[in-house]
Design a protein around this nucleic acid. Structure first.
Lengths: 195, 195
DNA sequence: GTCTATATTGGGATAGAC
DNA sequence: GTCTATCCCAATATAGAC
């Protein structure tokens, strides 16, 4: 069936484009990355690329979406910790091996705060589900008596995620500064001490 | 003295340009703001503007520098609280009235993490001095017995600043979400409970 | 599905007059 | 100090052939 072969080829090329795009967006940010360059590194022309993703923004959203899916898969399988708070800490640690990727997320989430940004809804949804996930685990920890029942689970979730995000900026600016992983653990410890 | 008049005029125009530039960078970010547009809104031509700031980056750095100076002045005078931690909380509260400006800082600090960014050293220095200022107050609070002597002042400083930064992103994405000011106070309260 | 060629737009920066 | 005019470059996107 020739049709099947064509599909397979198209899909493979799509993946290759997404790989290259991730790499370039990561390295240089959205605005400074051209579709031309992505195309060249993926081994086709600009027009060829735009056959797969008809606009630059569409391509970009796909990159984000795929990256997020992979992140979640990775941490569900390799770090089987059912406590998403500890998982958050280990994600932060893991991120310290991938400055380029961290930079992509930091810059993209910042840019997505533009009211007209196409990526905005992606990030709104991402934070919403992340907060819900962490808040759920905070409640679990409260039931286990690990965490004071006085604490507002949603507030704690917001703060943990905010701290992780904010530390990334400081770390990107001074990689030999304070250790993000250690700081996150100290925060978690402090919260556990609240009576 | 005609010379004096010329200087005064030049300085006034410079200020006007910086005002407009701040507004536009704030609204659309660095890359999507053109020198042309800034010039037009400041009532001169692009070439005219580039007489005052010879490159776009130079203009940008000046915008940041001036904004930072004004911020510091404002909070030293109007919020005379000698405790920079409470001052940090009140800055966060104040920021909630200025989403555009918050967006500028969030996007610019994110972009500045590029190794080749001209603004990088500006932000590195900014975080360094901010951390030092907050850490100093943490030590003062420890001497007053308000805060556990076990806590590492530098770590607490990093975390407080990180939380403030991170919350801004969540707030920009969902302005009717959790209240940044309240959350910052909860964090501060939690830290004070650490034995 | 991929190409070449091109339309179209917009940007930063400079030259030189006033 | 400010202008007009222009250079030069890069970008996105489209048209149409293969």
């Amino acid at each position: 069936m020739p049709v099947r072969g064509q599909y397979a080829k198209g899909i493979a090329k799509r993946e290759e484009i997404l790989d290259v795009a991730l790499e370039l967006f990561t390295k240089k940010g959205y605005d400074r990355t051209s579709v031309r360059e992505i195309a060249r590194l993926a081994g086709l022309s600009q027009a060829g690329l735009l056959h797969h993703f008809s606009t630059k923004e569409e391509l970009f959203i796909e990159v984000l979406r795929r990256r997020d899916v992979r992140n979640r898969e990775e941490f569900r399988s390799s770090h089987g910790d059912p406590n998403s708070i500890r998982r958050l800490v280990s994600i932060v640690r893991h991120n310290m091996t991938q400055p380029g990727l961290v930079r992509l997320y930091v810059t993209m989430s910042a840019e997505s705060t533009d009211v007209d940004s196409t990526a905005r809804s992606f990030f709104v949804e991402r934070y919403r589900s992340l907060r819900a996930e962490v808040a759920k685990d905070v409640r679990a920890q409260q039931r286990l008596g690990e965490l004071s029942a006085e604490l507002d689970p949603d507030a704690v979730a917001s703060l943990l995620i905010a701290a992780a995000d904010g530390l990334q900026i400081q770390w990107l600016l001074e990689s030999d500064g304070p250790d993000m992983g250690v700081l996150m653990e100290q925060l978690w410890t402090a919260l556990r001490h609240v009576p």
